[in-house]
Design a protein around this nucleic acid. Structure first.
Lengths: 142, 142
DNA sequence: ACTAGTTAGTTAGCCTAATTAATTAAATAT
DNA sequence: ATATTTAATTAATTAGGCTAACTAACTAGT
């Protein structure tokens, strides 16, 4: 055998799961008037800390205007507020009290959703998957 | 410890990788005038066999009109053609000769792309990931 | 202190890919 | 035969990205 040119089925399975996951999460978040992306931003700020638009754009591999629009929706809902940095160009997003409460609510329901998906999957398997995902991320940076 | 309510970081990593992967694949497919979804359909037909719109819609968790639009683009490019089944409602998509050639071309470049991402990842790790992805898929069906 | 170049963010307009609702036609079940 | 379900389409809408062009603020080189 000289060449191994068959496609890796891991990536295909990866792809197939994206929509069920997104649809499921949407079901869970819908009653809270929250999209997956909005939840993602609240989650980031809560877990990583206050962030600028550019930081989010880089982290998510989206362009900055996408973040502007998303942030505006959360501001309208009084879930985040913006503080100007010492560098006056930078607008640092923070959670409001209301945003903190929302995060804690959503965290519970999202966790329940995820737990329902992890049935029959062991800790060890999860760890291997995470390790592989991290390596993939590193390979993207090359 | 009575409750474990912290979010599973595997799903977050999963999410973060989606855009770099899609963007990378788009780079690879762009020169061939092909979107990721179009490639996905060609690939499905080539590897699984001729398929109806409904079959694809179910497999990908999208609505049927989405498949109609996608298929039309491939018909316009003469990459697939449609045969009516014995059930005359069903339109079965097949690859044309041109479509088969396109598949073989793309398979090579996509494989190279995937290989570049799999650096430092072992066969065994891949297998664990695939097994986990399959279990997740089963859990969605519940 | 001026100038040139860069970075952060916004606005406007566009595109793609998805959705829902309504329609037609064919197959199936009562 | 009639009613229901299934396959596919069309039309209209929505969500979430993108690029291009812009302002404002910072940085570095002269």
């Amino acid at each position: 055998m000289k060449e191994d040119t068959h496609l890796n089925s891991m990536f295909a399975k990866f792809k197939i799961l994206q929509r069920p996951y997104a649809n499921g999460l949407q079901q869970v978040l819908g009653p809270y008037q929250m999209s997956e992306a909005q939840w993602g931003l609240i989650r980031y700020i809560s877990e990583v800390g206050p962030a600028t638009n550019s930081e989010i754009a880089l982290y998510w591999s989206v362009e900055k205007p996408s973040v502007t629009a998303l942030a505006q929706k959360l501001i309208d809902q009084h879930l985040i507020y913006v503080v100007y940095g010492t560098d006056k160009r930078k607008k640092v997003m923070h959670l409001t009290e209301e945003g903190i409460v929302k995060y804690q609510q959503l965290k519970k329901v999202v966790h329940a959703f995820q737990a329902s998906l992890l049935v029959d999957i062991t800790e060890e398997e999860c760890e291997v998957v995470e390790k592989v995902l991290e390596k993939l991320q590193q390979n993207f940076r090359k």
